[in-house]
Structure formats: structure tokens, C-alpha cells
């Protein structure tokens, strides 16, 4: 027996669904199964009006096990992480956390990481911070950077090699 989505020929991926729910249950109490589709999340979604993200649909697709459809879609990368959906859900479900899990899955499956995420990741791996000291323009159009100011030296990992080794270990581990 099987259930198939005839628009995409997608089938329920029970294993992946379980993986996401396990991952979520480590971060919060309840999983998506309790959702009754009131769509309070989408009514208030900061990304919906601009980018058409529908958190309630994400939860529904997860319940149906149609994971690939989401992992392969750009829509999961439109979330602004405002956490409003998690805050206000009457069933204590956190679409925002489901989206984080889906994005992690997309990355782990080798899909190209969108935007500057790779740059940020590279920067954190190499120096511990998402970016190095920037030269910034002031209101009078002059520019300055940290060293020009009366501020202490930038705090960053003192042994980058050791730090990087630690992070690399995680990159291959699963939550």
C-alpha cells in the first residue's frame, strides 16, 4: 500500500520524517504531528508577504512525509527566523525549527548553500568569526576601522588550528 502525491509523484519518506522529528524533540517538547492547521503561523509570518513562505504548509508536508519536496525547494531559505510562529503556535509547534532542520538536511545532502552562507562558514572555520574587521564609512564620509579606535584587540580563537579541528568534527556529525 502507498500514498502518492500525484502532482509531484512524491511518496511519504517515513525515515526522513522520523529523523526531523527526532531532531526537533531534542530541541523542544512537541513535534509537528499535533498541528491542526489553524495557520496562525502563516497569518503572522514575516516572510510570507514578501517571499510566500507558508509555515503551516511546511508542517503539513512534514506530517505527510513529503520531505524531498521541501529540501529541494528554495522556499525553506526564505525564513527570517523571527520566531513568531514558534512563539504563538497554540499547539507548541515550531515551524521555524522545522525549517532549520530542513535547511540542515539540504546542506548535508550536498545541495549548494545559497547566498553568503558558504562565505560565512569559511570565515568562521578559518578565523572563528563570520567576518574580519571592516573599514566603515562614517557620516562625514571618512573611514575608520577597529584599530583606529580606542578599543581593545578583537577577541577571537587564539589557536585557529585547534579551533578548526573541533568544528570540522561537527561538520560530519549529525544532530
Amino acid at each position: 500500500m502507498s500514498i502518492v502525491d500525484l502532482t509531484s509523484m512524491g511518496e511519504s519518506q517515513a525515515e526522513l520524517r522520523k529523523e526531523i522529528n527526532d531532531r526537533l524533540s531534542r530541541l523542544q517538547e512537541d513535534v509537528s504531528d499535533y498541528c491542526y492547521q489553524c495557520a496562525k503561523c502563516t497569518s503572522g509570518c514575516e516572510a510570507h508577504k514578501l517571499l510566500e513562505l507558508e509555515p503551516h504548509k511546511i508542517v503539513a508536508l512534514l506530517k505527510r512525509g513529503l520531505i524531498d519536496e521541501m529540501v529541494n525547494s528554495d522556499i525553506i531559505w526564505t525564513c527570517m527566523s523571527c520566531f513568531k510562529c514558534r512563539e504563538r503556535c497554540p499547539q507548541k509547534i515550531a515551524p521555524v525549527e522545522i525549517l532549520f532542520a530542513l535547511k540542515n538536511m539540504a546542506v548535508a545532502s550536498g545541495k549548494q548553500i545559497p547566498g553568503k552562507y558558504s562565505t560565512i562558514l569559511q570565515s568562521v572555520l578559518s578565523m572563528g568569526l563570520i567576518q574580519d574587521i571592516q573599514e566603515v564609512t562614517m557620516r562625514d564620509t571618512k573611514t575608520k576601522k577597529r584599530g583606529d579606535l580606542d578599543l581593545p584587540a578583537l577577541s577571537k580563537p587564539s589557536d585557529p588550528a585547534k579551533f578548526q579541528a573541533g568544528l570540522m568534527k561537527i561538520a560530519v556529525e549529525k544532530l
Binding site: 496562525k40 502563516t42 503572522g44 513568531k84
Partner: peptide, 12 residues
């Protein structure tokens, strides 16, 4: 009775 029924819960 010309009632606009919206099946959804507002967030605010």
C-alpha cells in the same frame, strides 16, 4: 447571511 468566513487564525 453574507458572512465572510475565513478558515484560519490571525496571529495578531
Amino acid at each position: 447571511l453574507k458572512t465572510n468566513m475565513f478558515r484560519g487564525r490571525p496571529s495578531e
